[in-house]
Simulated scan of single mutants.
Amino acid sequence: MIRAIIIDDEPAMQEVNSQLLSEYFPNIKLVGTADCIKTGINLIHKKKPDLVLLDIQLSDGSGFQLLQKLPSYNFKVVFITAFDSFAIKAIKFSAIDYILKPVNEIEFQQAIQRAIALIEKKEHTESQVNVLMDSFKKELQNKKLVLRTQNSMHIVDISDIHFCKSDNSYTTFYLDNNEKILVSKSLKDYEGILKEYGFFRPHQSFLVNLNHIKKVDKTDHGFLIMKNKKEIPISTRQKKNLIDLLDRL
């Protein structure tokens, strides 16, 4: 019996994939589900699965980051993703299977069947995963974002963004060398794009690059001190999530 787990932050997707496994693959036993990097890693250590259905975009980071936090593993991975050209390109470069949201039953069956074949042949996939991680890291290092203002189009390195600040339907980007760029899009428009690249929303008005945090002040409500010496508030609701996330870096 093949032991499988599902790591996805959408309960509906957990249910869909669980039902498809049960319907089409009676030789696969679902031994658990998780919804983030932390619970996913704990579940992997506890259940020691043969197969992991792993969502790329989790609430506290990416499925790629989850794999990077594991010192070693011998399970097979099938990624689950909404359409994301970068993620799919990285996966295709490594010839690792993925399931596209919304789930197509035939494609689901094909991806799982290929994973079963690898498990049964005891075929190692470390080299494929290494190619995937290299592609992922290179994409992060070189990733740029286009910011359109009223008069200009700015092309910025994501790594140069310290934080973003919301002002209703506008967002100000704070960059290296104290540069600021104001764009006429909401912070929510950028949160989904930047979350995959190490950004976190500690407060409804701010989105911060975790790589530019210098210090976390935990007194009272608490606030962040960035490397550019700016102070960012932390909401009570997000304080524990942020500290947990930083502990895992």
Rank of each mutant, 00 (worst) to 15 (best):
19 Q>D: 15
220 D>H: 08
9 D>P: 05
238 Q>E: 15
132 L>G: 04
122 K>D: 13
162 H>R: 06
48 K>L: 14
98 Y>A: 06
26 P>C: 06
51 L>P: 05
103 V>G: 05
46 K>G: 01
33 T>P: 01
54 L>C: 05
216 V>P: 05
20 L>N: 11
4 A>K: 02
97 D>W: 00
189 D>H: 12
211 N>T: 08
181 I>P: 04
80 I>A: 01
9 D>H: 10
40 G>I: 11
21 L>R: 07
97 D>N: 15
33 T>M: 12
14 Q>C: 13
249 L>D: 03
232 I>S: 02
155 I>N: 12
29 K>I: 12
79 F>Q: 03
55 D>R: 04
53 L>N: 03
24 Y>H: 15
85 S>L: 09
129 V>A: 00
224 L>H: 07
153 M>H: 06
37 I>Y: 07
206 F>S: 01
208 V>I: 13
218 K>T: 14
241 N>P: 02
24 Y>I: 05
248 R>F: 10
145 L>A: 05
171 T>W: 02
71 P>V: 01
182 L>H: 01
130 N>W: 03
93 F>D: 12
77 V>I: 15
220 D>I: 03
243 I>W: 09
78 V>F: 06
223 F>L: 12
39 T>H: 12
99 I>A: 03
53 L>R: 04
222 G>V: 07
104 N>D: 15
47 K>C: 14
193 I>V: 13
109 Q>G: 01
38 K>Y: 11
72 S>Y: 11
76 K>P: 00
235 S>P: 10
117 A>E: 14
83 F>E: 12
202 P>I: 10
133 M>A: 04
57 Q>V: 02
37 I>D: 06
94 S>Q: 04
222 G>I: 07
177 N>P: 00
176 D>K: 12
103 V>S: 06
198 G>W: 08
146 V>M: 13
228 N>G: 09
34 A>D: 08
229 K>M: 11
143 K>L: 09
146 V>F: 10
232 I>M: 06
86 F>R: 11
